[in-house]
Structures are given as C-alpha cells and as structure tokens.
Design a protein around this nucleic acid. Structure first.
Ligand SMILES: [Zn+2]
Ligand SMILES: [Zn+2]
Ligand SMILES: [Zn+2]
Ligand SMILES: [Zn+2]
Lengths: 151, 151
DNA sequence: ACAACTTTGCAACAAAGTTGCAAAACAATG
DNA sequence: CATTGTTTTGCAACTTTGTTGCAAAGTTGT
C-alpha cells in the first residue's frame, strides 16, 4: 500500500506533531495535535474561522483561541496581518522560539481564492525612514492574483 | 485677536469642511462635519474608537461606522491596516476619488504612543513576485519608535 | 416654504473575543 | 499502572465590534 494515507505514515506524522509540541514545552493534547496537523497539511495560512470549520465537531471556539495564542507565543506559528482585518496564522519555518519571531518575509493574499502565502524566499525590503524614526518590524502584504487563480 | 481659535478662523474652517463634503457629493450634516474636522485637526490616523471618544456625546456608534464608510468610498479618507488588527483611517492627500484610491505610501505605527503616520513621501517599494503571481496592491506597515517617542 | 431625498438614531441582531471556574486530561513519579 | 500535582478544556457569562431594517429628523433644491 503506497500513499500518504497509509497507517504507518499517519503514525509517523503523529510523532512528528508530538515532538513539535514537546519541543515547545506544550503538553500533547488532542486539540493541539489536530490544529497543528491542520497547519502541517495546509500550504497557505489559516484563519480562526477556517480551523473552526475543519475541526469535525467536538472542539470549542475558546480552545482554538487559546491554542493559537499558545502556538504564537511558543514560536510555532506566526500572525499574518491582512488588509481585510482578519488575522491569519502560518507555520514558522525560520528559527522562531518563545517570544522571538524572525519571520521577515513578504506575505501574499490572493484576491480571488483568498489563500494567504508566506513568500519565504522574499525578504521584506528595507525602507529608509524620516530622521528620528526607528524601525523594529516591517510587514509587507501584497494583494493580487496567485498562480492558481491566474486566468 | 490673533490665533487659531478666533471666530473668523472657525467659520473659514467650517466652510472648507463643507466644501470637501459637497465636492464628494455628500450632504453637509453635523456628524460628518464633526468627524471630518477631527481628521483635519489630527496629524496621525484615527480609529473608530478614537472618534467615539472625542465626539462629545450625541453621536451614535452606527453613525460613525456609516460616516467612515462613506468617507472611504468617496475618497476622502483611506484605510490603514495595522498589525494589531485595528483599522485606522487617515485623510487622503493624493488625488483619490470615488472608488479609486491612490495612497501608495508607507505607513508607520509607533509602538510607544500608537500614533499612526502616513509617510506620504515614501512610496511602497516594488517587490518581485514568483512567476504566476501578479500584484494589485502592496501595503507596507512599519512598527517602531516615532520621532516624538525616541528617548 | 414645500416636496423629494438622504441621513440619523434606535432596536435588534450577529460575529468575534475575553475571563473565571470546575471537570477532565495530561505528565511525572514511584 | 496507579497516584498526585499541574495543565488544559469546555461551559457560562460577558464585552466589544460590526450589521441591518425602519421610522423620525435633517438636508437639498425649487
Ligand atoms: Zn488564488
Ligand atoms: Zn509568513
Ligand atoms: Zn510615538
Ligand atoms: Zn496613509
């Protein structure tokens, strides 16, 4: 049996997930595994609402809020601000740790399918500020059409 | 009597405000004048909550929502997205018109005083996207310390 | 001053997020 | 694998934020 849904693969994936949680000093619970699994099997970013829908019953709104909060704080996921005032989250691929994020890449939101991409390969440009102003973090959010939606 | 609070100046300011509204095909009402006056006398950006506080009684939350909506639609103010998921608004100084905004400048949010600045003189940089992706709008939000708050 | 139109405030609602607390789940130890 | 101490979950209750329909009030043009 070859494929990504074999029993062995599921077990391995399950261990990978447990290890990520342990490394972040978070206890391994069903809700956290489920949410982290969702992130690992999605290439774009996820909003709170997406997770609430995916989660087949049996998970409280509040648990999702607290799980996302914990993941952000521990450096597992980062927040992606969007122009439509809806926060999205994506896995950190850089070396982020508790309280220290280093996700200095550009984000892209497709106006058609609303998928949000981390353009990991594109660093945020440096902007020269007026005198007296100092930068601590720069966010670049690009709206447009993604490769899939391009006619 | 010299100063910015003389009767004559107030009347002139009042006419300027009325003219902006008329040019945008909006009828001149007390609420709209009050909110537009607030924008004209603030150098930073304003959030819904700021306006709600300033407005000395006698203006409904809902009127504020609808006024801001109308102003955005008519090209009087533009939306500034922020990383903390709180929408702010600022006057358009570019030639924005009904449904067509051209506010292609960088925005700066001070982490200390939370003032939000339109850096009109700094255009958003051009970012080269992966193939298949096309840009329609780019937002740059810089967090840091502003000139006033710099120790 | 009048009629036609637009805006406002109210009520009612919906969505999004927060806090305190007891029950359940988990981790560590023997 | 059972016990214990700690963490997490789900619930209730609440706050904040935003939306919609509608009648009363205000505005515009004649
Ligand atoms: Zn797309
Ligand atoms: Zn990212
Ligand atoms: Zn400042
Ligand atoms: Zn601006």
């Amino acid at each position: 049996m070859i494929g990504s849904s074999g029993t062995k693969e599921v077990i391995m994936q399950d261990e990978i997930i447990a290890n990520i949680l342990k490394s972040a000093n978070l206890s391994v619970t069903a809700s956290r595994k489920k949410i982290l699994n969702l992130f690992l099997s999605t290439n774009g970013a996820l909003a709170h609402a997406d997770i609430e829908q995916e989660a087949d019953e049996k998970m409280d709104r509040i648990t999702i809020y607290r799980t996302l909060q914990a993941f952000v704080q521990k450096g597992i996921i980062h927040i992606i601000p969007t122009t439509d005032n809806s926060i999205r989250y994506a896995l950190c691929k850089d070396e982020c740790s508790e309280g220290h994020h280093h996700d200095q890449h550009v984000h892209f939101v497709c106006s058609e399918c609303h998928t949000t991409y981390c353009l990991e390969q594109i660093n945020v440009p440096h902007v020269k500020l007026p005198s007296g102003f100092t930068e601590s973090q720069t966010e670049v959010i690009i709206n447009g059409l993604c490769a899939k939606c391009h006619a």
